[in-house]
Simulated scan of single mutants.
Amino acid sequence: MSASFTDKSWSIFNQSISEYHKVDDVDQPMNNPYEEGTIEATLYHKNWIDTVQWHLEDIIRDPQIDPETALTIKRRIDASNQDRTDMVEEIDTWFREKYANVDVKADAKINTESPAWAIDRFSILSLKIYHMREEVERNDVTPEHHAKVASKLTILEEQKIDLSTAIEELLEDYASGNKYMKVYRQMKMYNDPSLNPVLYKQSK
């Protein structure tokens, strides 16, 4: 029996996280082990972007950070968010092609979010669990801290089960024609020189 899509995704996400933490440097290159153009390669790349951004978000919250360095990192985070959005849309394109020939039922319903945005949350959840587990395994904390983070880890692991179940049910609905995909491309304005007034007023 082949692994479910969420099982495969979870394995790839944790592979990416593990590989990142071997060096633990936001400037390290990504070495994607999967063949270019495959959904596996896209999932790995997606999580790598999320993992690097997770650590950039940690760095920028250093109260002693130099303002110029903080601005540079903020711009990296903005660029990363755009890359993340592009990657989500690439995953949705894969899903649309996968279910393109399904006979959609007359009473089929639309979902509140596309499958790729659910996978995006799944990727972020893998990072939350990894780093919360790190907190649980610390030896330099009080019993109170340990109990608090252990409780949070339990909740996150429950959320992983619930989210993976919901994603699998959604994919089954697409496969059976009970739901249909309708993807709205993200229309981010702040990165577009023609839509961000701060940028387009400077060009006049």
Rank of each mutant, 00 (worst) to 15 (best):
V102H: 03
T69Y: 08
W117T: 08
A118T: 09
N32Q: 00
T38N: 02
D103Y: 03
I161H: 07
I60V: 05
I65C: 00
V141A: 11
T69M: 15
K201T: 15
Q159M: 06
Y174L: 03
R76Y: 05
D92L: 00
T112H: 05
A79I: 07
K188L: 12
A118R: 15
V52A: 06
L163F: 03
E97Y: 11
I73T: 04
M189H: 10
Q53P: 05
N111Q: 13
E19Q: 12
S203Y: 12
M181W: 01
P197W: 02
S16W: 05
L163R: 02
K128M: 12
Y20N: 03
H55V: 05
K204M: 11
Y20C: 05
K148A: 13
N191P: 09
Q159V: 03
E90H: 08
E169K: 07
V102G: 01
K182T: 12
H131I: 00
Q202V: 09
Q53E: 12
Y200R: 07
E35W: 08
H45Y: 12
K152T: 13
I155W: 10
R121T: 06
E57H: 08
T112P: 05
P193E: 05
D86E: 14
L163Q: 04
K46M: 15
D27G: 12
I161Q: 09
W48K: 04
